[in-house]
Design a binder for these strands. Structure first.
Length: 419
RNA sequence: GGAGGGGUAGCAUAGUGGUCUAAUGCGGCGGAUUGCUAAUCCGUUGUGUCGUCGAAAGGCGGCACCGUGGGUUCAAAUCCCACCCCCUCCGCCA
């Protein structure tokens, strides 16, 4: 959330950012309301000053008779102030609403573009092996060997709520533990956080106001199910001033994630590709501003490490301006090659939000020189489970229809094959 | 869900209608003293916003901010109402 003054003084920069991200903002109305607001404030402050002086005079006079006319005058000011203040309040609410739809500014290193075709593949890792048999898509083989089941999930809840069974459930649990252990070993502090958050937290990380329809909403309490651990974890330090020596702070959290995926039906919705509830291990960094782009690269490296250890071929994609999320200033996606569905599937998104989320969540740090400044926040999946499971099922498939357990998961699963 | 207590600047605390223009302590920053450290002493101290000066850093002046939002009053940290959060107890419950 930009301060009103910043918006006024940097309006061209912000206009450009919104345009690059394809975000509509009513700039004309902003300028009109901003002028009106300042006019009203000047008027109000003058009246308030007069009234204050009068009030002080009244408090010092003891003779009741000479006070009466002063009170009459003061009452007049008071009524006037109340009326104009009401108007001002309404205008400020409108301005706030407009500002809340101004997106973060893309970093200069982000390629300009409209959609996924303008993204840039920055590297590829791992070898895509030629197979001498037809690799089956995960939904065929997964249901056949009984590690997950969609129809039973549909019975319990609805479509796209998978049930993992036996070795499948074990695989889920193993992946979560493997990832957590890995990240903890690399300096991330584990936290366990609520999966339900309030409106304020979602606004702070930038999911609101734009994505309200994509989330599960608990009307009685005005709470939401989290779409990602980014929300509760980034908000851990809401309204705090951190010490410079405490930074950077690295967190890792496992949470379930809930997404309504409104309007996504029919698009990449087979099998485990797009589901309403899934598991994810998330990395969050709170850092000093001058380090955030270096931190983004190392964050990306942490997420890549997961796939490297699982030995899954992937590529790293730098998102163009049009694909960048509302709150992000730079973002890399990691996509695993899945030979069954013959597609790269996104398993991680690593973003730098610069001070965008920190401003909204009011997270600052005190510098050595005594001044306070907003921190920068970053997060990245490390990584999301369902598509990683797709990657494992499809890359580790044998001709007989079995799935070899990746080396690093064997100590967690105590088996070397899923049959 | 019910009853009571509480929420005041980075932290801790005082303030129950009008010198509150929010006190005090700690911490932070600057300085003095000083073999070093510590202690002591002096000074300083938050956020937002409007106007104005300035290239800028910032200065000057005003207004607002005591959990959030309303209300009463000439005047609210203080009184009233609603909500949120924390603590104690009771009830219910995996």
């Amino acid at each position: 959330m930009y301060p009103i003054k910043f918006v006024r003084e940097n309006i061209d920069l912000l206009k450009k950012a919104a345009e690059l991200k394809g975000q509509k903002v009513d700039w004309e109305k902003f300028e009109q309301l901003d002028n009106e607001r300042r006019r009203l404030i000047m008027f109000l402050e003058e009246r308030k000053k007069w009234q204050k002086d009068l009030t002080e005079k009244i408090s010092k006079i003891e003779d009741k008779n000479s006070v009466a006319p002063l009170i009459t005058q003061a009452r007049k000011y008071s009524d006037e102030i109340k009326e104009v203040e009401k108007k001002l309040n309404q205008i400020e609410r409108e301005i706030e609403k407009i500002i809340s739809f101004i997106p973060n500014i893309p970093h200069s290193s982000v390629p300009i573009g409209k959609d996924a075709r303008d993204n840039v593949v920055v590297r590829q890792w791992g070898e895509i092996r030629e197979r001498n048999f037809k690799v089956l898509p995960h939904w065929e083989i997964g249901e056949k060997i009984g590690i997950f089941d969609f129809s039973v999930g549909a019975k319990i809840t609805g479509s796209f709520f998978p049930v993992f069974k036996e070795k499948g459930a074990l695989l889920v649990r193993a992946l979560i533990n493997f990832m957590l252990d890995l990240h903890i070993k690399n300096g991330f502090r584990e936290v366990w956080v609520p999966s339900i958050v309030n409106r304020d937290s979602l606004f702070n990380t930038g999911q609101l106001p734009k994505l309200e329809d994509d989330m599960y909403y608990l009307e009685r309490d005005d709470f939401f199910l989290i779409p990602t651990a980014e929300v509760p974890v980034t908000n851990l330090h809401k309204n705090e001033i951190l010490k410079e020596e405490d930074l950077p702070i690295y967190y890792v959290a496992y949470t379930p994630c809930f997404r309504r995926e409104a309007g996504a039906y029919g698009r990449e919705t087979k099998g485990l590709i797009r589901v309403h509830q899934f598991d994810k291990v998330e990395l969050v960094k709170l850092v000093k501003p001058d380090t955030s782009y270096d931190e983004l690269e190392t964050l990306l490296g942490e997420a890549e490490k997961v796939l490297q250890l699982l030995n899954l071929p992937y590529r790293v994609v730098l998102l163009c301006t049009g694909e960048l999320s509302f709150a992000g200033s730079k973002c890399y996606d990691i996509e695993v090659w899945c030979p069954g569905v013959e597609k790269y599937l996104e398993v991680s998104s690593c973003s730098n939000f610069e001070s965008f989320q920190a401003r909204r969540a009011n997270i600052k740090y005190k510098r050595k020189d005594g001044k306070t400044d907003y921190i920068h926040t970053l997060n990245g999946s490390g990584v999301a489970l369902p598509r990683t499971i797709i990657g494992i099922i499809e890359n580790y498939q044998t001709e007989k229809g079995e799935i070899i357990v990746p080396e690093v998961l064997r100590e967690y699963m105590k088996i070397d094959k899923i049959t």
